[in-house]
Every structure is written in C-alpha cells, then in structure tokens.
Design a protein around this nucleic acid. Structure first.
Lengths: 249, 249
DNA sequence: AAGCGTAAAGTAGTCATATAACTTTGTAAA
DNA sequence: TTTACAAAGTTATATGACTACTTTACGCTT
C-alpha cells in the first residue's frame, strides 16, 4: 500500500526529520553516523538529498560534519541559542538591553540555586575563576588600557558565572549562559569604557563577586541573590551610561 | 593580497557564513533571496554547494525555503530555541524540571516588567487570553475529561503568558516563552493529571491569572511578581507530584 | 616484537548535467 | 473583468565522476 498518502514536503526535509528522530532517540553524543552513502540508501534518496538533510541537522547544531570522517552527534551546548541571539541583536541592537535584563533574572536564580545545591567541587571551580579575575584585574590596573588583561578578566568573569550555573545543577541555565556569553561580550567592553568615567573598577568588581561566592558557600541563598542583583544593577547602569550620549559633556 | 590563504573549511560552510552575513546585514525579514542559480554564480560555487549552504541557514531558522519560490528571510522567532529545548529534553528528560525553574524566574521578571510597561492594548490582549481560558475551563468543568477543552485551555494559558511577555516590551523574553511553550506542553498535561487527585482546578487557575493581570493593570509590579511566583510554585508542585511515583496509593 | 611509513580503502566535498514538480507570470479567450 | 492556460522561473532530485582528506591495514625496518 501507499505509505505516505501524498507526501507534500520535499524529500530532504522528510529525511531530515527522520534522521533527527533517529539521532535524538537512538544515538548519544559522540557517536558516529553511518556514511552518507549508507544513509542515502537506507532512506531511499540520492546522496545529494541525503547531504542536504545532514546539512540541515548540522545547521541546527545536532551534528558535527567534517571532511573525510563520518558525522558525529554533537554534545548539546549553548551555541544554537547563542547563534540565535547573535542574529537577533544584529538585526535589532536594542535587543541587547532586553538580553541584559533576561540575564539579570537568570543570574539571580542561578546564585540562589547555587547556594542551595553547590558541591565543594563546584565552589572550588568558582573560586578558581575568581582568582583569575583578580589576577587579570591587578594586571589591568597597573596599565589602565591593557586590552589583553581586560579580555582575560572578561573571560574569567564569564567563567565565574558559568561555574555558578553549573553549581546550581540546572543544565538549562548553563546552556543559556553559555549562549549569552558571546553577545554579552560587546556590552562588557562598552561598560568598561563607561567605568573609566565612573567609579567602579575591576578590583571592586572582584570584591562583589567574592561576596556572592561567600554567600553561596555559606548556603545563604537570599544573600547571594541580593548581592548578585546589586552587581548586575550596577553593571546595567554602567552599560546604559556607556551607550547613552547623555552622560559626558 | 591573497584573500583566503589556504581555505581549509569546505566551500559550502564558507558560503553559508557569507550568506548569513549578507542576510543579517543587508536583508530584512520577508525579503526574497535571489535564485539559487544566481547565488551560486555570485559566490562562485556550483548549485549543489549553494543549496547545501542555503539548507544550513534554513536549519538555523534564518530562511524559509519552499519548492518553486525563492527563499525568504524569516522573521526571528522562538522556534530555534524551542528546537534546542526539545532535543535537549528528549536526550535528558530531567532537563524538563530545569526548564520549569528557568521559566519561573523569567515569568516573574515578565510580570514585573509588564506592570511597569504594559500599554492598554497589551493588557487587552492578556484579557482576551484570560477570557479564552475561562471559557475553556467552564467547558472542561462540565465534562471532567474533555480533552479538547483542556487543549484550548492550555493554548489560552500560553497565549496569556506570551501576551504578558509582549506587554513587558522585552522581545527576548517573548522569544524565550514562545520557544518554551512546546516543550512545556507535556508538563502541563502531567500536572492536569496530578490536579485531578489534588485540589486546584482550572477555574482556580483562571482566578490566579486574573489576579496577576489585575496587579499589572494597576501598575503593581511587586504584587504581580508575587502572584506569578505563587502561581508557578503551585504549578511546579503539581507537576512534580504528577511525575513522582510517591503521591498516589 | 615493536615501531614506522606507505599503500589502500573509506568517506566527505564538489562539480556538471539532466529532468521533474511546483509557482509565478503573462496572455488570450469567455 | 474574470478565467483558463501556456510559458517562464525556480526549487527538488537523481546520476555519475572526480578530488581531497582520514582511517585502516599491511609490510618493512629496527
């Protein structure tokens, strides 16, 4: 009998859906797919069509394809979300501020949950990131315009917040932060520019982060979330000041 | 000078990147791309390679491709995020609870901001969704197992929360809720099953939502966020009860 | 026996060409 | 003006060939 009753979708799309289901249902990250030729025969399409289906999955971030070797199933990560945010902000830069607000509430949640759930290893990871922040802050402090040190500071900053998300035990939170980190990098440098006019320095920022971590390791969720809230309020104020033309005379 | 110095990436990937940049930089949603043949010539690759590049962008959700008509630039929406969440939960169902917690903090943020920023039109949209919730709740109430009415209720529920996000003026929030709605649908039905054993009914849920909306239209952000927090606490409790084997005897 | 290098096989990447199927457009008839 | 239909535009799919890279296997050297 007829198996699909007038399939209207292109074969490549139909095959991509079947392949997606197979990848998600029967395969785990790191596993290799069969060769394109095998898959093409398996799904009853040509190699060209099969390749288009694979490319759609690759675009979605489900597969890693490389020359000469069979495609492998990707570990889930925040890049799909990050790509979406990047294109969104590129098409409407105002969304950067929307993102900053979203980040704020997620960070507060993250700090709260980390205080409740963090393991000793999780706290140590955050401490390590904090140490790297401190090192970079001191280096950047000696030379106010040390771009490399500022970059290291920002990376350590991101690492700190991702360590907190990891310590919270909430994987979705981790992926979200990972995805946000790239689009947010831009706003960081804007805020640094702003902070040269204003008060807060990198060293003060380290102290604020240290306070958050102290609350977390004491299991003080309320204190951690309040401290995080204040940290991000300050950061947002600096970013807005850096972007708005009103501040400087 | 030489422009690519031993290009190691496949041509399809390089072309996809260039096309992405072009789409994001020079085109707006709704615009049509040139024909594949034109693009292939423009980028100096064969039609096959060009099609693979286009398919990658389609997989990322940047383009809508259909047979016979040129590809059009998609309006940004939450589907890329939703696809990611769907595959994540499929590969690890525990992440559903992580998502529910993330949703909780975003909803609180949404309610708070809606109270501050909602226009009259935005509030009316939420009222309309609330009306549909009420209608569906009453219908479902007459027949306790009316699956169609429950489905309408859930859709209206989603509409209500998306209306709030829209009213908040934060586009990122809107996209996030849109993306979460599908993966969360599953948890809704689970909680309904739970609620047949427990107290809260659909009608009570409508009342809770109405209270939130009342706070928002009064500009009471604190009240709105507290009410939202309580609503979602109850919802999460029901969902956990429905999923855990411990509750029922 | 162990290590190494090279040949062979496996695999993804790219191309040219042909044809089918669908959409849009232009034109002529009602 | 509306409808019907033909023509052009465009995407979808297949076949076959060839290239370039990766992995594997085999035999040689040490």
């Amino acid at each position: 009998m007829n198996h699909d009753a007038a399939e209207t979708r292109p074969a490549a799309v139909a095959v991509a859906d079947k392949l997606t289901e197979h990848v998600l249902g029967a395969l785990t990250p790191g596993m290799r797919l069969r060769s394109e030729a095998d898959l093409a025969e398996l799904y009853g399409v040509s190699r060209v069509t099969m390749r288009e289906a694979v490319k759609m999955l690759a675009g979605r971030g489900l597969l890693d394809v490389a020359r000469g070797r069979r495609a492998i199933v990707r570990q889930p990560d925040g890049s799909a979300f990050g790509d979406f945010l990047t294109s969104l902000i590129k098409s409407d830069p105002k969304c950067l501020f929307d993102l900053i607000q979203v980040r704020r509430s997620l960070e507060i949640q993250s700090a709260m949950m980390a205080a409740r759930n963090a393991s000793r290893a999780g706290i140590m990871a955050a401490e390590a990131a904090l140490g790297r922040m401190q090192d970079a802050a001191l280096e950047a402090g000696r030379d106010g315009a040390d771009a490399a040190a500022q970059m290291r500071f920002h990376q350590a900053d991101v690492d700190f917040h991702e360590a907190l998300a990891l310590a919270s035990g909430n994987r979705v939170l981790s992926y979200l932060f990972e995805g946000m980190s790239l689009p947010l990098r831009e706003s960081f440098y804007a805020s640094r520019r702003g902070q040269q006019l204003r008060g807060l320095s990198l060293v003060d920022s380290v102290a604020s982060h240290a306070h958050i971590l102290a609350c977390i390791s004491n299991g003080d969720g309320k204190g951690a979330s309040m401290a995080m809230s204040k940290l991000l309020d300050d950061a947002e104020r600096d970013i807005r000041a850096a972007y708005s033309p009103a501040s400087h005379g």
